[in-house]
Design a binder for these strands. Structure first.
Length: 174
DNA sequence: AGCAAGATCGGT
DNA sequence: CCGATCTTGCTG
């Protein structure tokens, strides 16, 4: 139904994390074309959110999160996994939505491995990119919200915020 | 320069 | 439950 435009990404991360499930993530990489429905997301809401990387200040790694909504923030963890995040909100408000799962690839590490997404996609602009973007589908699945995964270090109240969204009846990771 | 920890995954 | 694997950011 067409590529999502800039305005969509200017809302806050929690709002967008709740809208992305059901939409399609489309890739055109080196002859490999793919369309995958987003099934699971998580919101990281700015420098006040202790679970958000930006809460430790602006560093070379987190710089992309300070870009205008619609860009990608990609980083490497545990020595083996790329994490795919969609930056949200206006420039200089560091927020992002982690794509934790798409059709056929549940789990943030599996998403990037499955779609061939790596550090070369860091700072990519979903609004104009020729190799990755998001499309509206008209599908509005029922979602289940819950606490975010793997952020025990953040402490309360952040650890309990229901900012993880999964399509109801969709299998969780593993 | 050295080190601890990490928005994970797969095998036991 | 544990090991893999390596970048980042903080400490000194």
């Amino acid at each position: 139904m067409g590529r999502v435009d800039r305005d969509f990404f200017l809302a806050d991360a929690v709002t967008i994390a709740g809208l992305l499930p059901g939409m399609d993530l489309v890739t055109e990489t080196g002859g490999n074309a793919g369309r995958y429905m987003i099934t699971e997301t998580e919101a990281y809401l700015g420098d006040g959110d202790r679970a958000c990387h930006a809460s430790r200040g602006r560093t070379p790694r987190t710089e992309p999160m300070y870009m205008e909504g619609g860009h990608l923030y990609i980083y490497f963890v545990y020595g083996m996994h790329w994490m795919l995040n969609v930056v949200t909100g206006p420039a200089d408000y560091p927020q992002a939505v982690l794509i934790r799962g798409v059709s056929h690839y549940p789990g943030p590490g599996r998403v990037t491995r499955g779609l061939g997404i790596d550090g070369s996609f860091n700072r990519e602009d979903l609004v104009v990119s020729g190799r990755i973007w998001i499309e509206e589908t008209g599908y509005r699945p029922e979602l289940v919200a819950g606490p975010r995964v793997g952020i025990g270090y953040a402490g309360e109240p952040w650890i309990s915020k229901p900012w993880r969204f999964i399509i109801k009846n969709e299998k969780e990771k593993k």
